Amino acid sequence: MADFDRNAYAPYAAGMGRTISAAQYDQGLRSYMLGIYNHMSIALAISGLVAIGAFMLGTTTGANGRLALTPFGAAIWTSPLKWAVMLAPLAFVFLLSFRWERMSFGALLGTFYGFAAIMGLSLSSIFVIYKLGSIAQVFFITAASFGALSLFGYTTKKDLSGVGKFMIMGLFGLVIAGLVNIFMQSSALQFAINVIGVLVFAGLTAWDTQRLKEEYDAVAGDQVLLQKWSLMGALTLYLNFINMFQMLLSLFGNRNE
């Protein structure tokens, strides 16, 4: 990784066609990055609230004092409908990825938060599988790790593009291994996928943060594009966070008996 000065042309950047001061540039960049983190945080909050709400609606206390499923819980977690719940977030990601440029900002914002809600419904089963204290503990570990990695990506003077390309290759490998393990059902392979996955999404978090910071120059001259790109950046970091959280939970979470 080579050292480089990402903001060497900051006073002339952002496609504005005019010279701006370094202070103006820094203020705009901070506002842009803050928007990304705000959208991501709101999306995580929506996902968490929907997941908890679905868990409360989907479970009850059985006659033996143990957790039992309501008809709603049985529908979203054990019936064929569970596949629609599991795959719906992927459909949203494809929609956002391929249609975002043609959507208005309002439509894009609504779709993004709708995706967060559907993701929350998809994640709600973790409250059935894992103990609540364990989920909270892993969430805070993920949040602290994500914050440190993103801060590193934002502040480092090292070019992380090489790391990013390597992580993308690792991501494709994880997808292939995950598909294979659907049929193999190997606990050892799943453990390896989770361990490697944590490392891959850790690397992607740092690289994506640096990449989003650098791309500010290209979008700052167009306010609408800037707003849309902020949302797409939030989607990227949100997915990194959620995937890291799920893999850490699989590795360290305490399961309900």
Rank of each mutant, 00 (worst) to 15 (best):
G65E: 09
A14K: 09
D217E: 11
A136D: 01
F92R: 13
D222C: 07
A2L: 13
A234V: 04
M1T: 14
V85W: 08
G65I: 10
F55T: 07
A45P: 03
G178T: 00
Q246K: 13
A220G: 05
A13S: 15
F166D: 00
F112I: 01
G178E: 01
P71L: 06
G133Y: 03
A91E: 07
F252R: 08
L69F: 14
A188Y: 04
G15I: 07
H39K: 09
Y9T: 14
L225S: 04
E215V: 01
I126E: 05
W207C: 01
G35E: 10
G133T: 07
S250P: 00
K228S: 02
A117N: 11
L87D: 12
M1F: 15
M86H: 09
D208A: 06
K82C: 02
F112Q: 05
K165R: 07
I129W: 10
D5S: 15
I126L: 08
S134N: 08
L121H: 09
F201A: 03
F146C: 04
Y12V: 12
L123S: 06
Q137K: 10
Q27M: 08
V163G: 02
Q190Y: 13
L204E: 00
G164A: 08
F152Y: 15
L189P: 02
W207G: 00
G53Y: 11
L235A: 03
D217G: 06
R102K: 15
A117L: 08
V50Y: 07
L67W: 05
V175Y: 03
A10L: 04
I242G: 01
F241P: 02
G58M: 04
M232K: 11
F191P: 00
T19H: 14
F139I: 10
A84G: 09
L90P: 04
Y25P: 10
L174H: 01
A14E: 03
N7Q: 15
M232G: 11
Y12N: 08
F146T: 11
L121I: 08
I193F: 01
F201G: 04
L81N: 02
M56L: 14
T70F: 02
G147W: 02
S161M: 02
I52T: 13
L248H: 05
L204S: 02
G65F: 07
D3K: 09
L151Q: 07
L29D: 05
L90H: 13
M40K: 10
A136Q: 12
A14P: 02
A234T: 10
I46R: 02
A74E: 12
F245R: 06
I129C: 03
Y25I: 09
G58V: 09
L251C: 05
P89S: 14
L132W: 04
G221K: 00
V85H: 06
T155Y: 10
W77T: 07
L226Q: 13
A23H: 13
M119N: 14
A117Y: 12
Y216A: 09
L231A: 03
I118W: 14
N64S: 12
N64Q: 11
